[in-house]
C-alpha cells in the first residue's frame, strides 16, 4: 500500500495538497482489516497538529472487506473524507465503503481526484 503526500503531474495545473492527507489504497488488492488499520494509523500520524481532510484513492482495488469497512467507519481524526475511484467498479466499491456505518465527518464519493479535492477545500484546516 502506498501513501503519497503529493503526486506531481506535469501537464495539469498543480493541485494543492497542502493540509490534506492523501492515501492511495493499492490497486488490484483485496483491502483487509489490517491494511485498513495501517492506513488509519498513517492518517492519524499525519494529523498530529489537529484534524485534516482526507483524500482516499481506491481506484483499481479488487475489493474491500466488511471488516476493513468497519475501520473506515471508525475514522476520527479526519475533518472530511473524499473517496475517489475512477471506474464504474470503483464507484460500486466506493459506495460500499460509504454504505457501512459511516464516520461522523462528512464523506462522499467522487469519480475524479480534482472533484474530491475541490470538495475538500471547504474542510481544509487553514492553519
Amino acid at each position: 500500500m502506498a501513501t503519497e503526500a503529493m503526486t506531481d503531474t506535469n501537464d495539469t495545473p498543480e493541485p494543492s495538497y497542502e493540509g490534506i492527507t492523501r492515501i492511495v489504497l493499492p490497486p488490484g488488492k483485496d483491502i483487509t482489516q489490517e491494511m485498513a488499520a495501517a492506513a488509519s494509523a498513517e492518517v492519524k500520524l499525519a494529523a498530529t497538529a489537529g484534524g485534516r481532510p482526507l483524500l482516499l484513492i481506491i481506484s483499481g482495488v479488487h475489493s474491500i472487506t466488511r471488516e476493513a469497512r468497519t475501520v473506515y467507519g471508525e475514522a476520527t481524526v479526519s475533518t472530511a473524507i473524499a473517496v475517489v475511484g475512477e471506474s464504474p467498479v470503483d464507484r460500486v466499491i466506493g459506495n460500499f465503503l460509504l454504505g457501512g456505518a459511516a464516520p461522523s465527518c462528512p464523506n462522499q464519493f467522487f469519480s475524479s481526484e480534482a472533484e474530491g479535492l475541490a470538495w475538500l477545500e471547504g474542510y481544509r484546516n487553514d492553519q
Binding site: 483499481g60 475489493s63 471506474s87 464504474p88 467498479v89 470503483d90 464507484r91 460500486v92 466499491i93 460500499f96
Partner: peptide
C-alpha cells in the same frame, strides 16, 4: 476492464 458489467459483477458479489 472495470467497466459497467464489472461494476454489476462487483455489486452482485457484494
Amino acid at each position: 476492464a472495470r467497466d459497467d458489467v464489472d461494476a454489476v459483477i462487483t455489486g452482485l458479489n457484494l
